[in-house]
Design a protein around this nucleic acid. Structure first.
Lengths: 246, 246
DNA sequence: GTCAGCATACTGGTCTGACCAAGATCAGAC
DNA sequence: GTCTGATCTTGGTCAGACCAGTATGCTGAC
């Protein structure tokens, strides 16, 4: 990595950032710790306060520290929001990335569901069941339905008890909700989707209950594939109730 | 999202950040564009220059813009380094996260290999083949061997032609190299690993050549599982040449 | 002795204005 | 028309200042 040893060579910002990074990585600065004040840091490193603020702000957007007004700067546990921001920006500038992100989402979820089969506990099962029920109840509503769909999938990832997977998954949350919602809007055009949505999710749920990773993965994968298929058909205007297309 | 409409309410930093974020997300600021100068931005938004710098610095660490000394600030294509930084920091503070990250790595790679089966071209095949050969050549070297191993796996992800997967994968590169290297050190203790390493990678390669996603995924997954198994046995000192354990 | 209340030191949040070094630009010399 | 150099502009940084609240501790009342 480009972890330059920061004795003196760097410019102001780099110096402060490297200084803090070292402590952070070495563990001498742990979550919960309060940093010394901006002024002290400035004099300590021989830079001006604005520079210190730049470094602190940088760490803030990275979710490493939190600047509390009139309190001080404290080290926080790494947060998701960074990835969220990143994906948000990245996506805005490359719309074609959306399909890519969906692939990543599939990757995360399929791995999560395998872990979920091993690690899920009663609470996870209950959460999944509730989400499943909600999907059935909101099948005709685009907004609520999309949310229920999203909740179910999130419940899968949560059940994996893997923080990293959860973080990655939720970092794509913004995009996923869009996707889920638009999928629900397709329900109007594709009545057959209702069965697909309900049955698929139920089958996925059952596979987790059965603690069968292979089946769960395969079912989930198929679920995504069918969703893609519907979306493709929607694009070409091939609706199953032979209505007019755009 | 917390995309507050930034007319005036926010504090200085938020105001500038929100202002730029809007342009970035709306697409009026595209990669390659040069922002107006810090001074102009400051007067335009009614804040001081240090504040503007904070916002620009924040965007910099997010990999959205690049501040070029004495040139100006330009919008860049979203970069991996953010995720790299994030994972680096996150991992430093939660060592237990490493296993989690490995799970994410498996997720990414298994998805990537499926895509690779569909999308890989001749160049990808050749890259894989070269990496495979390298693995055979460097089987007795810890460093070079670890690198060759890593290259092969990266080649898989590259062959998926999915930028997001590639980004995610390489963001975990730092950790993966460690993992690959320590695995190679195990080779000393487990002579049987040589066969495992070479044969497994070859089987993976063949599955991609055959363009069989299911087989490729399954083989890769098994590959990881066996690696885990070796690592577990190493921890408990169960070496296959009945040598002394630590 | 205890506790409320206020003064003060300290913190982040921000601004102003200034200086430096070097790329960018354009006028003027050739 | 081209080349060169002064000037403008840009980022990089600093110093010092003010504000608004927090935290602390001292003081005085009880």
């Amino acid at each position: 990595m480009e972890l330059k040893r920061g004795t003196d060579g760097e410019k102001g910002f780099e110096k402060v950032f490297a200084f803090l990074r070292e402590r952070l990585l070495a563990g001498s600065l742990k979550p919960g710790d309060r940093l010394i004040s901006e002024r002290e840091l400035a004099t300590l490193l021989g830079v001006s306060r604005p520079i210190v603020r730049e470094a602190l702000r940088a760490l803030t957007v990275l979710g490493i520290v939190e600047i509390r007004d009139r309190i001080g700067t404290v080290v926080t546990r790494p947060d998701v929001s960074v990835l969220n921001d990143f994906f948000t920006f990245a996506l805005a500038q490359q719309a074609d990335m959306l399909d890519d992100v969906m692939q990543a989402r599939v990757a995360i979820e399929c791995q999560a569901i395998r872990l979920a089969c091993e690690r899920a506990n009663i609470a996870d099962f209950e959460r999944l069941q509730r989400a499943l029920a909600k999907i059935g109840e909101t099948i005709d509503e685009a907004d609520a339905g999309g949310l229920a769909d999203f909740d179910f999938h999130r419940a899968i990832v949560v059940a994996s008890h893997s923080e990293t997977l959860t973080v990655l998954h939720s970092s794509m949350a913004g995009l996923l909700t869009h996707s889920h919602r638009s999928r629900r809007e397709l329900v109007q055009a594709f009545p057959s989707m209702k069965t697909y949505l309900i049955d698929d999710h139920r089958r996925i749920f059952e596979a987790i209950i059965a603690r069968d990773p292979e089946r769960a993965d395969a079912t989930l994968r198929k679920h995504f594939a069918i969703g893609d298929e519907y979306r493709r058909r929607a694009v070409v205007g091939d609706v199953d109730k032979t209505s007019a297309s755009g």
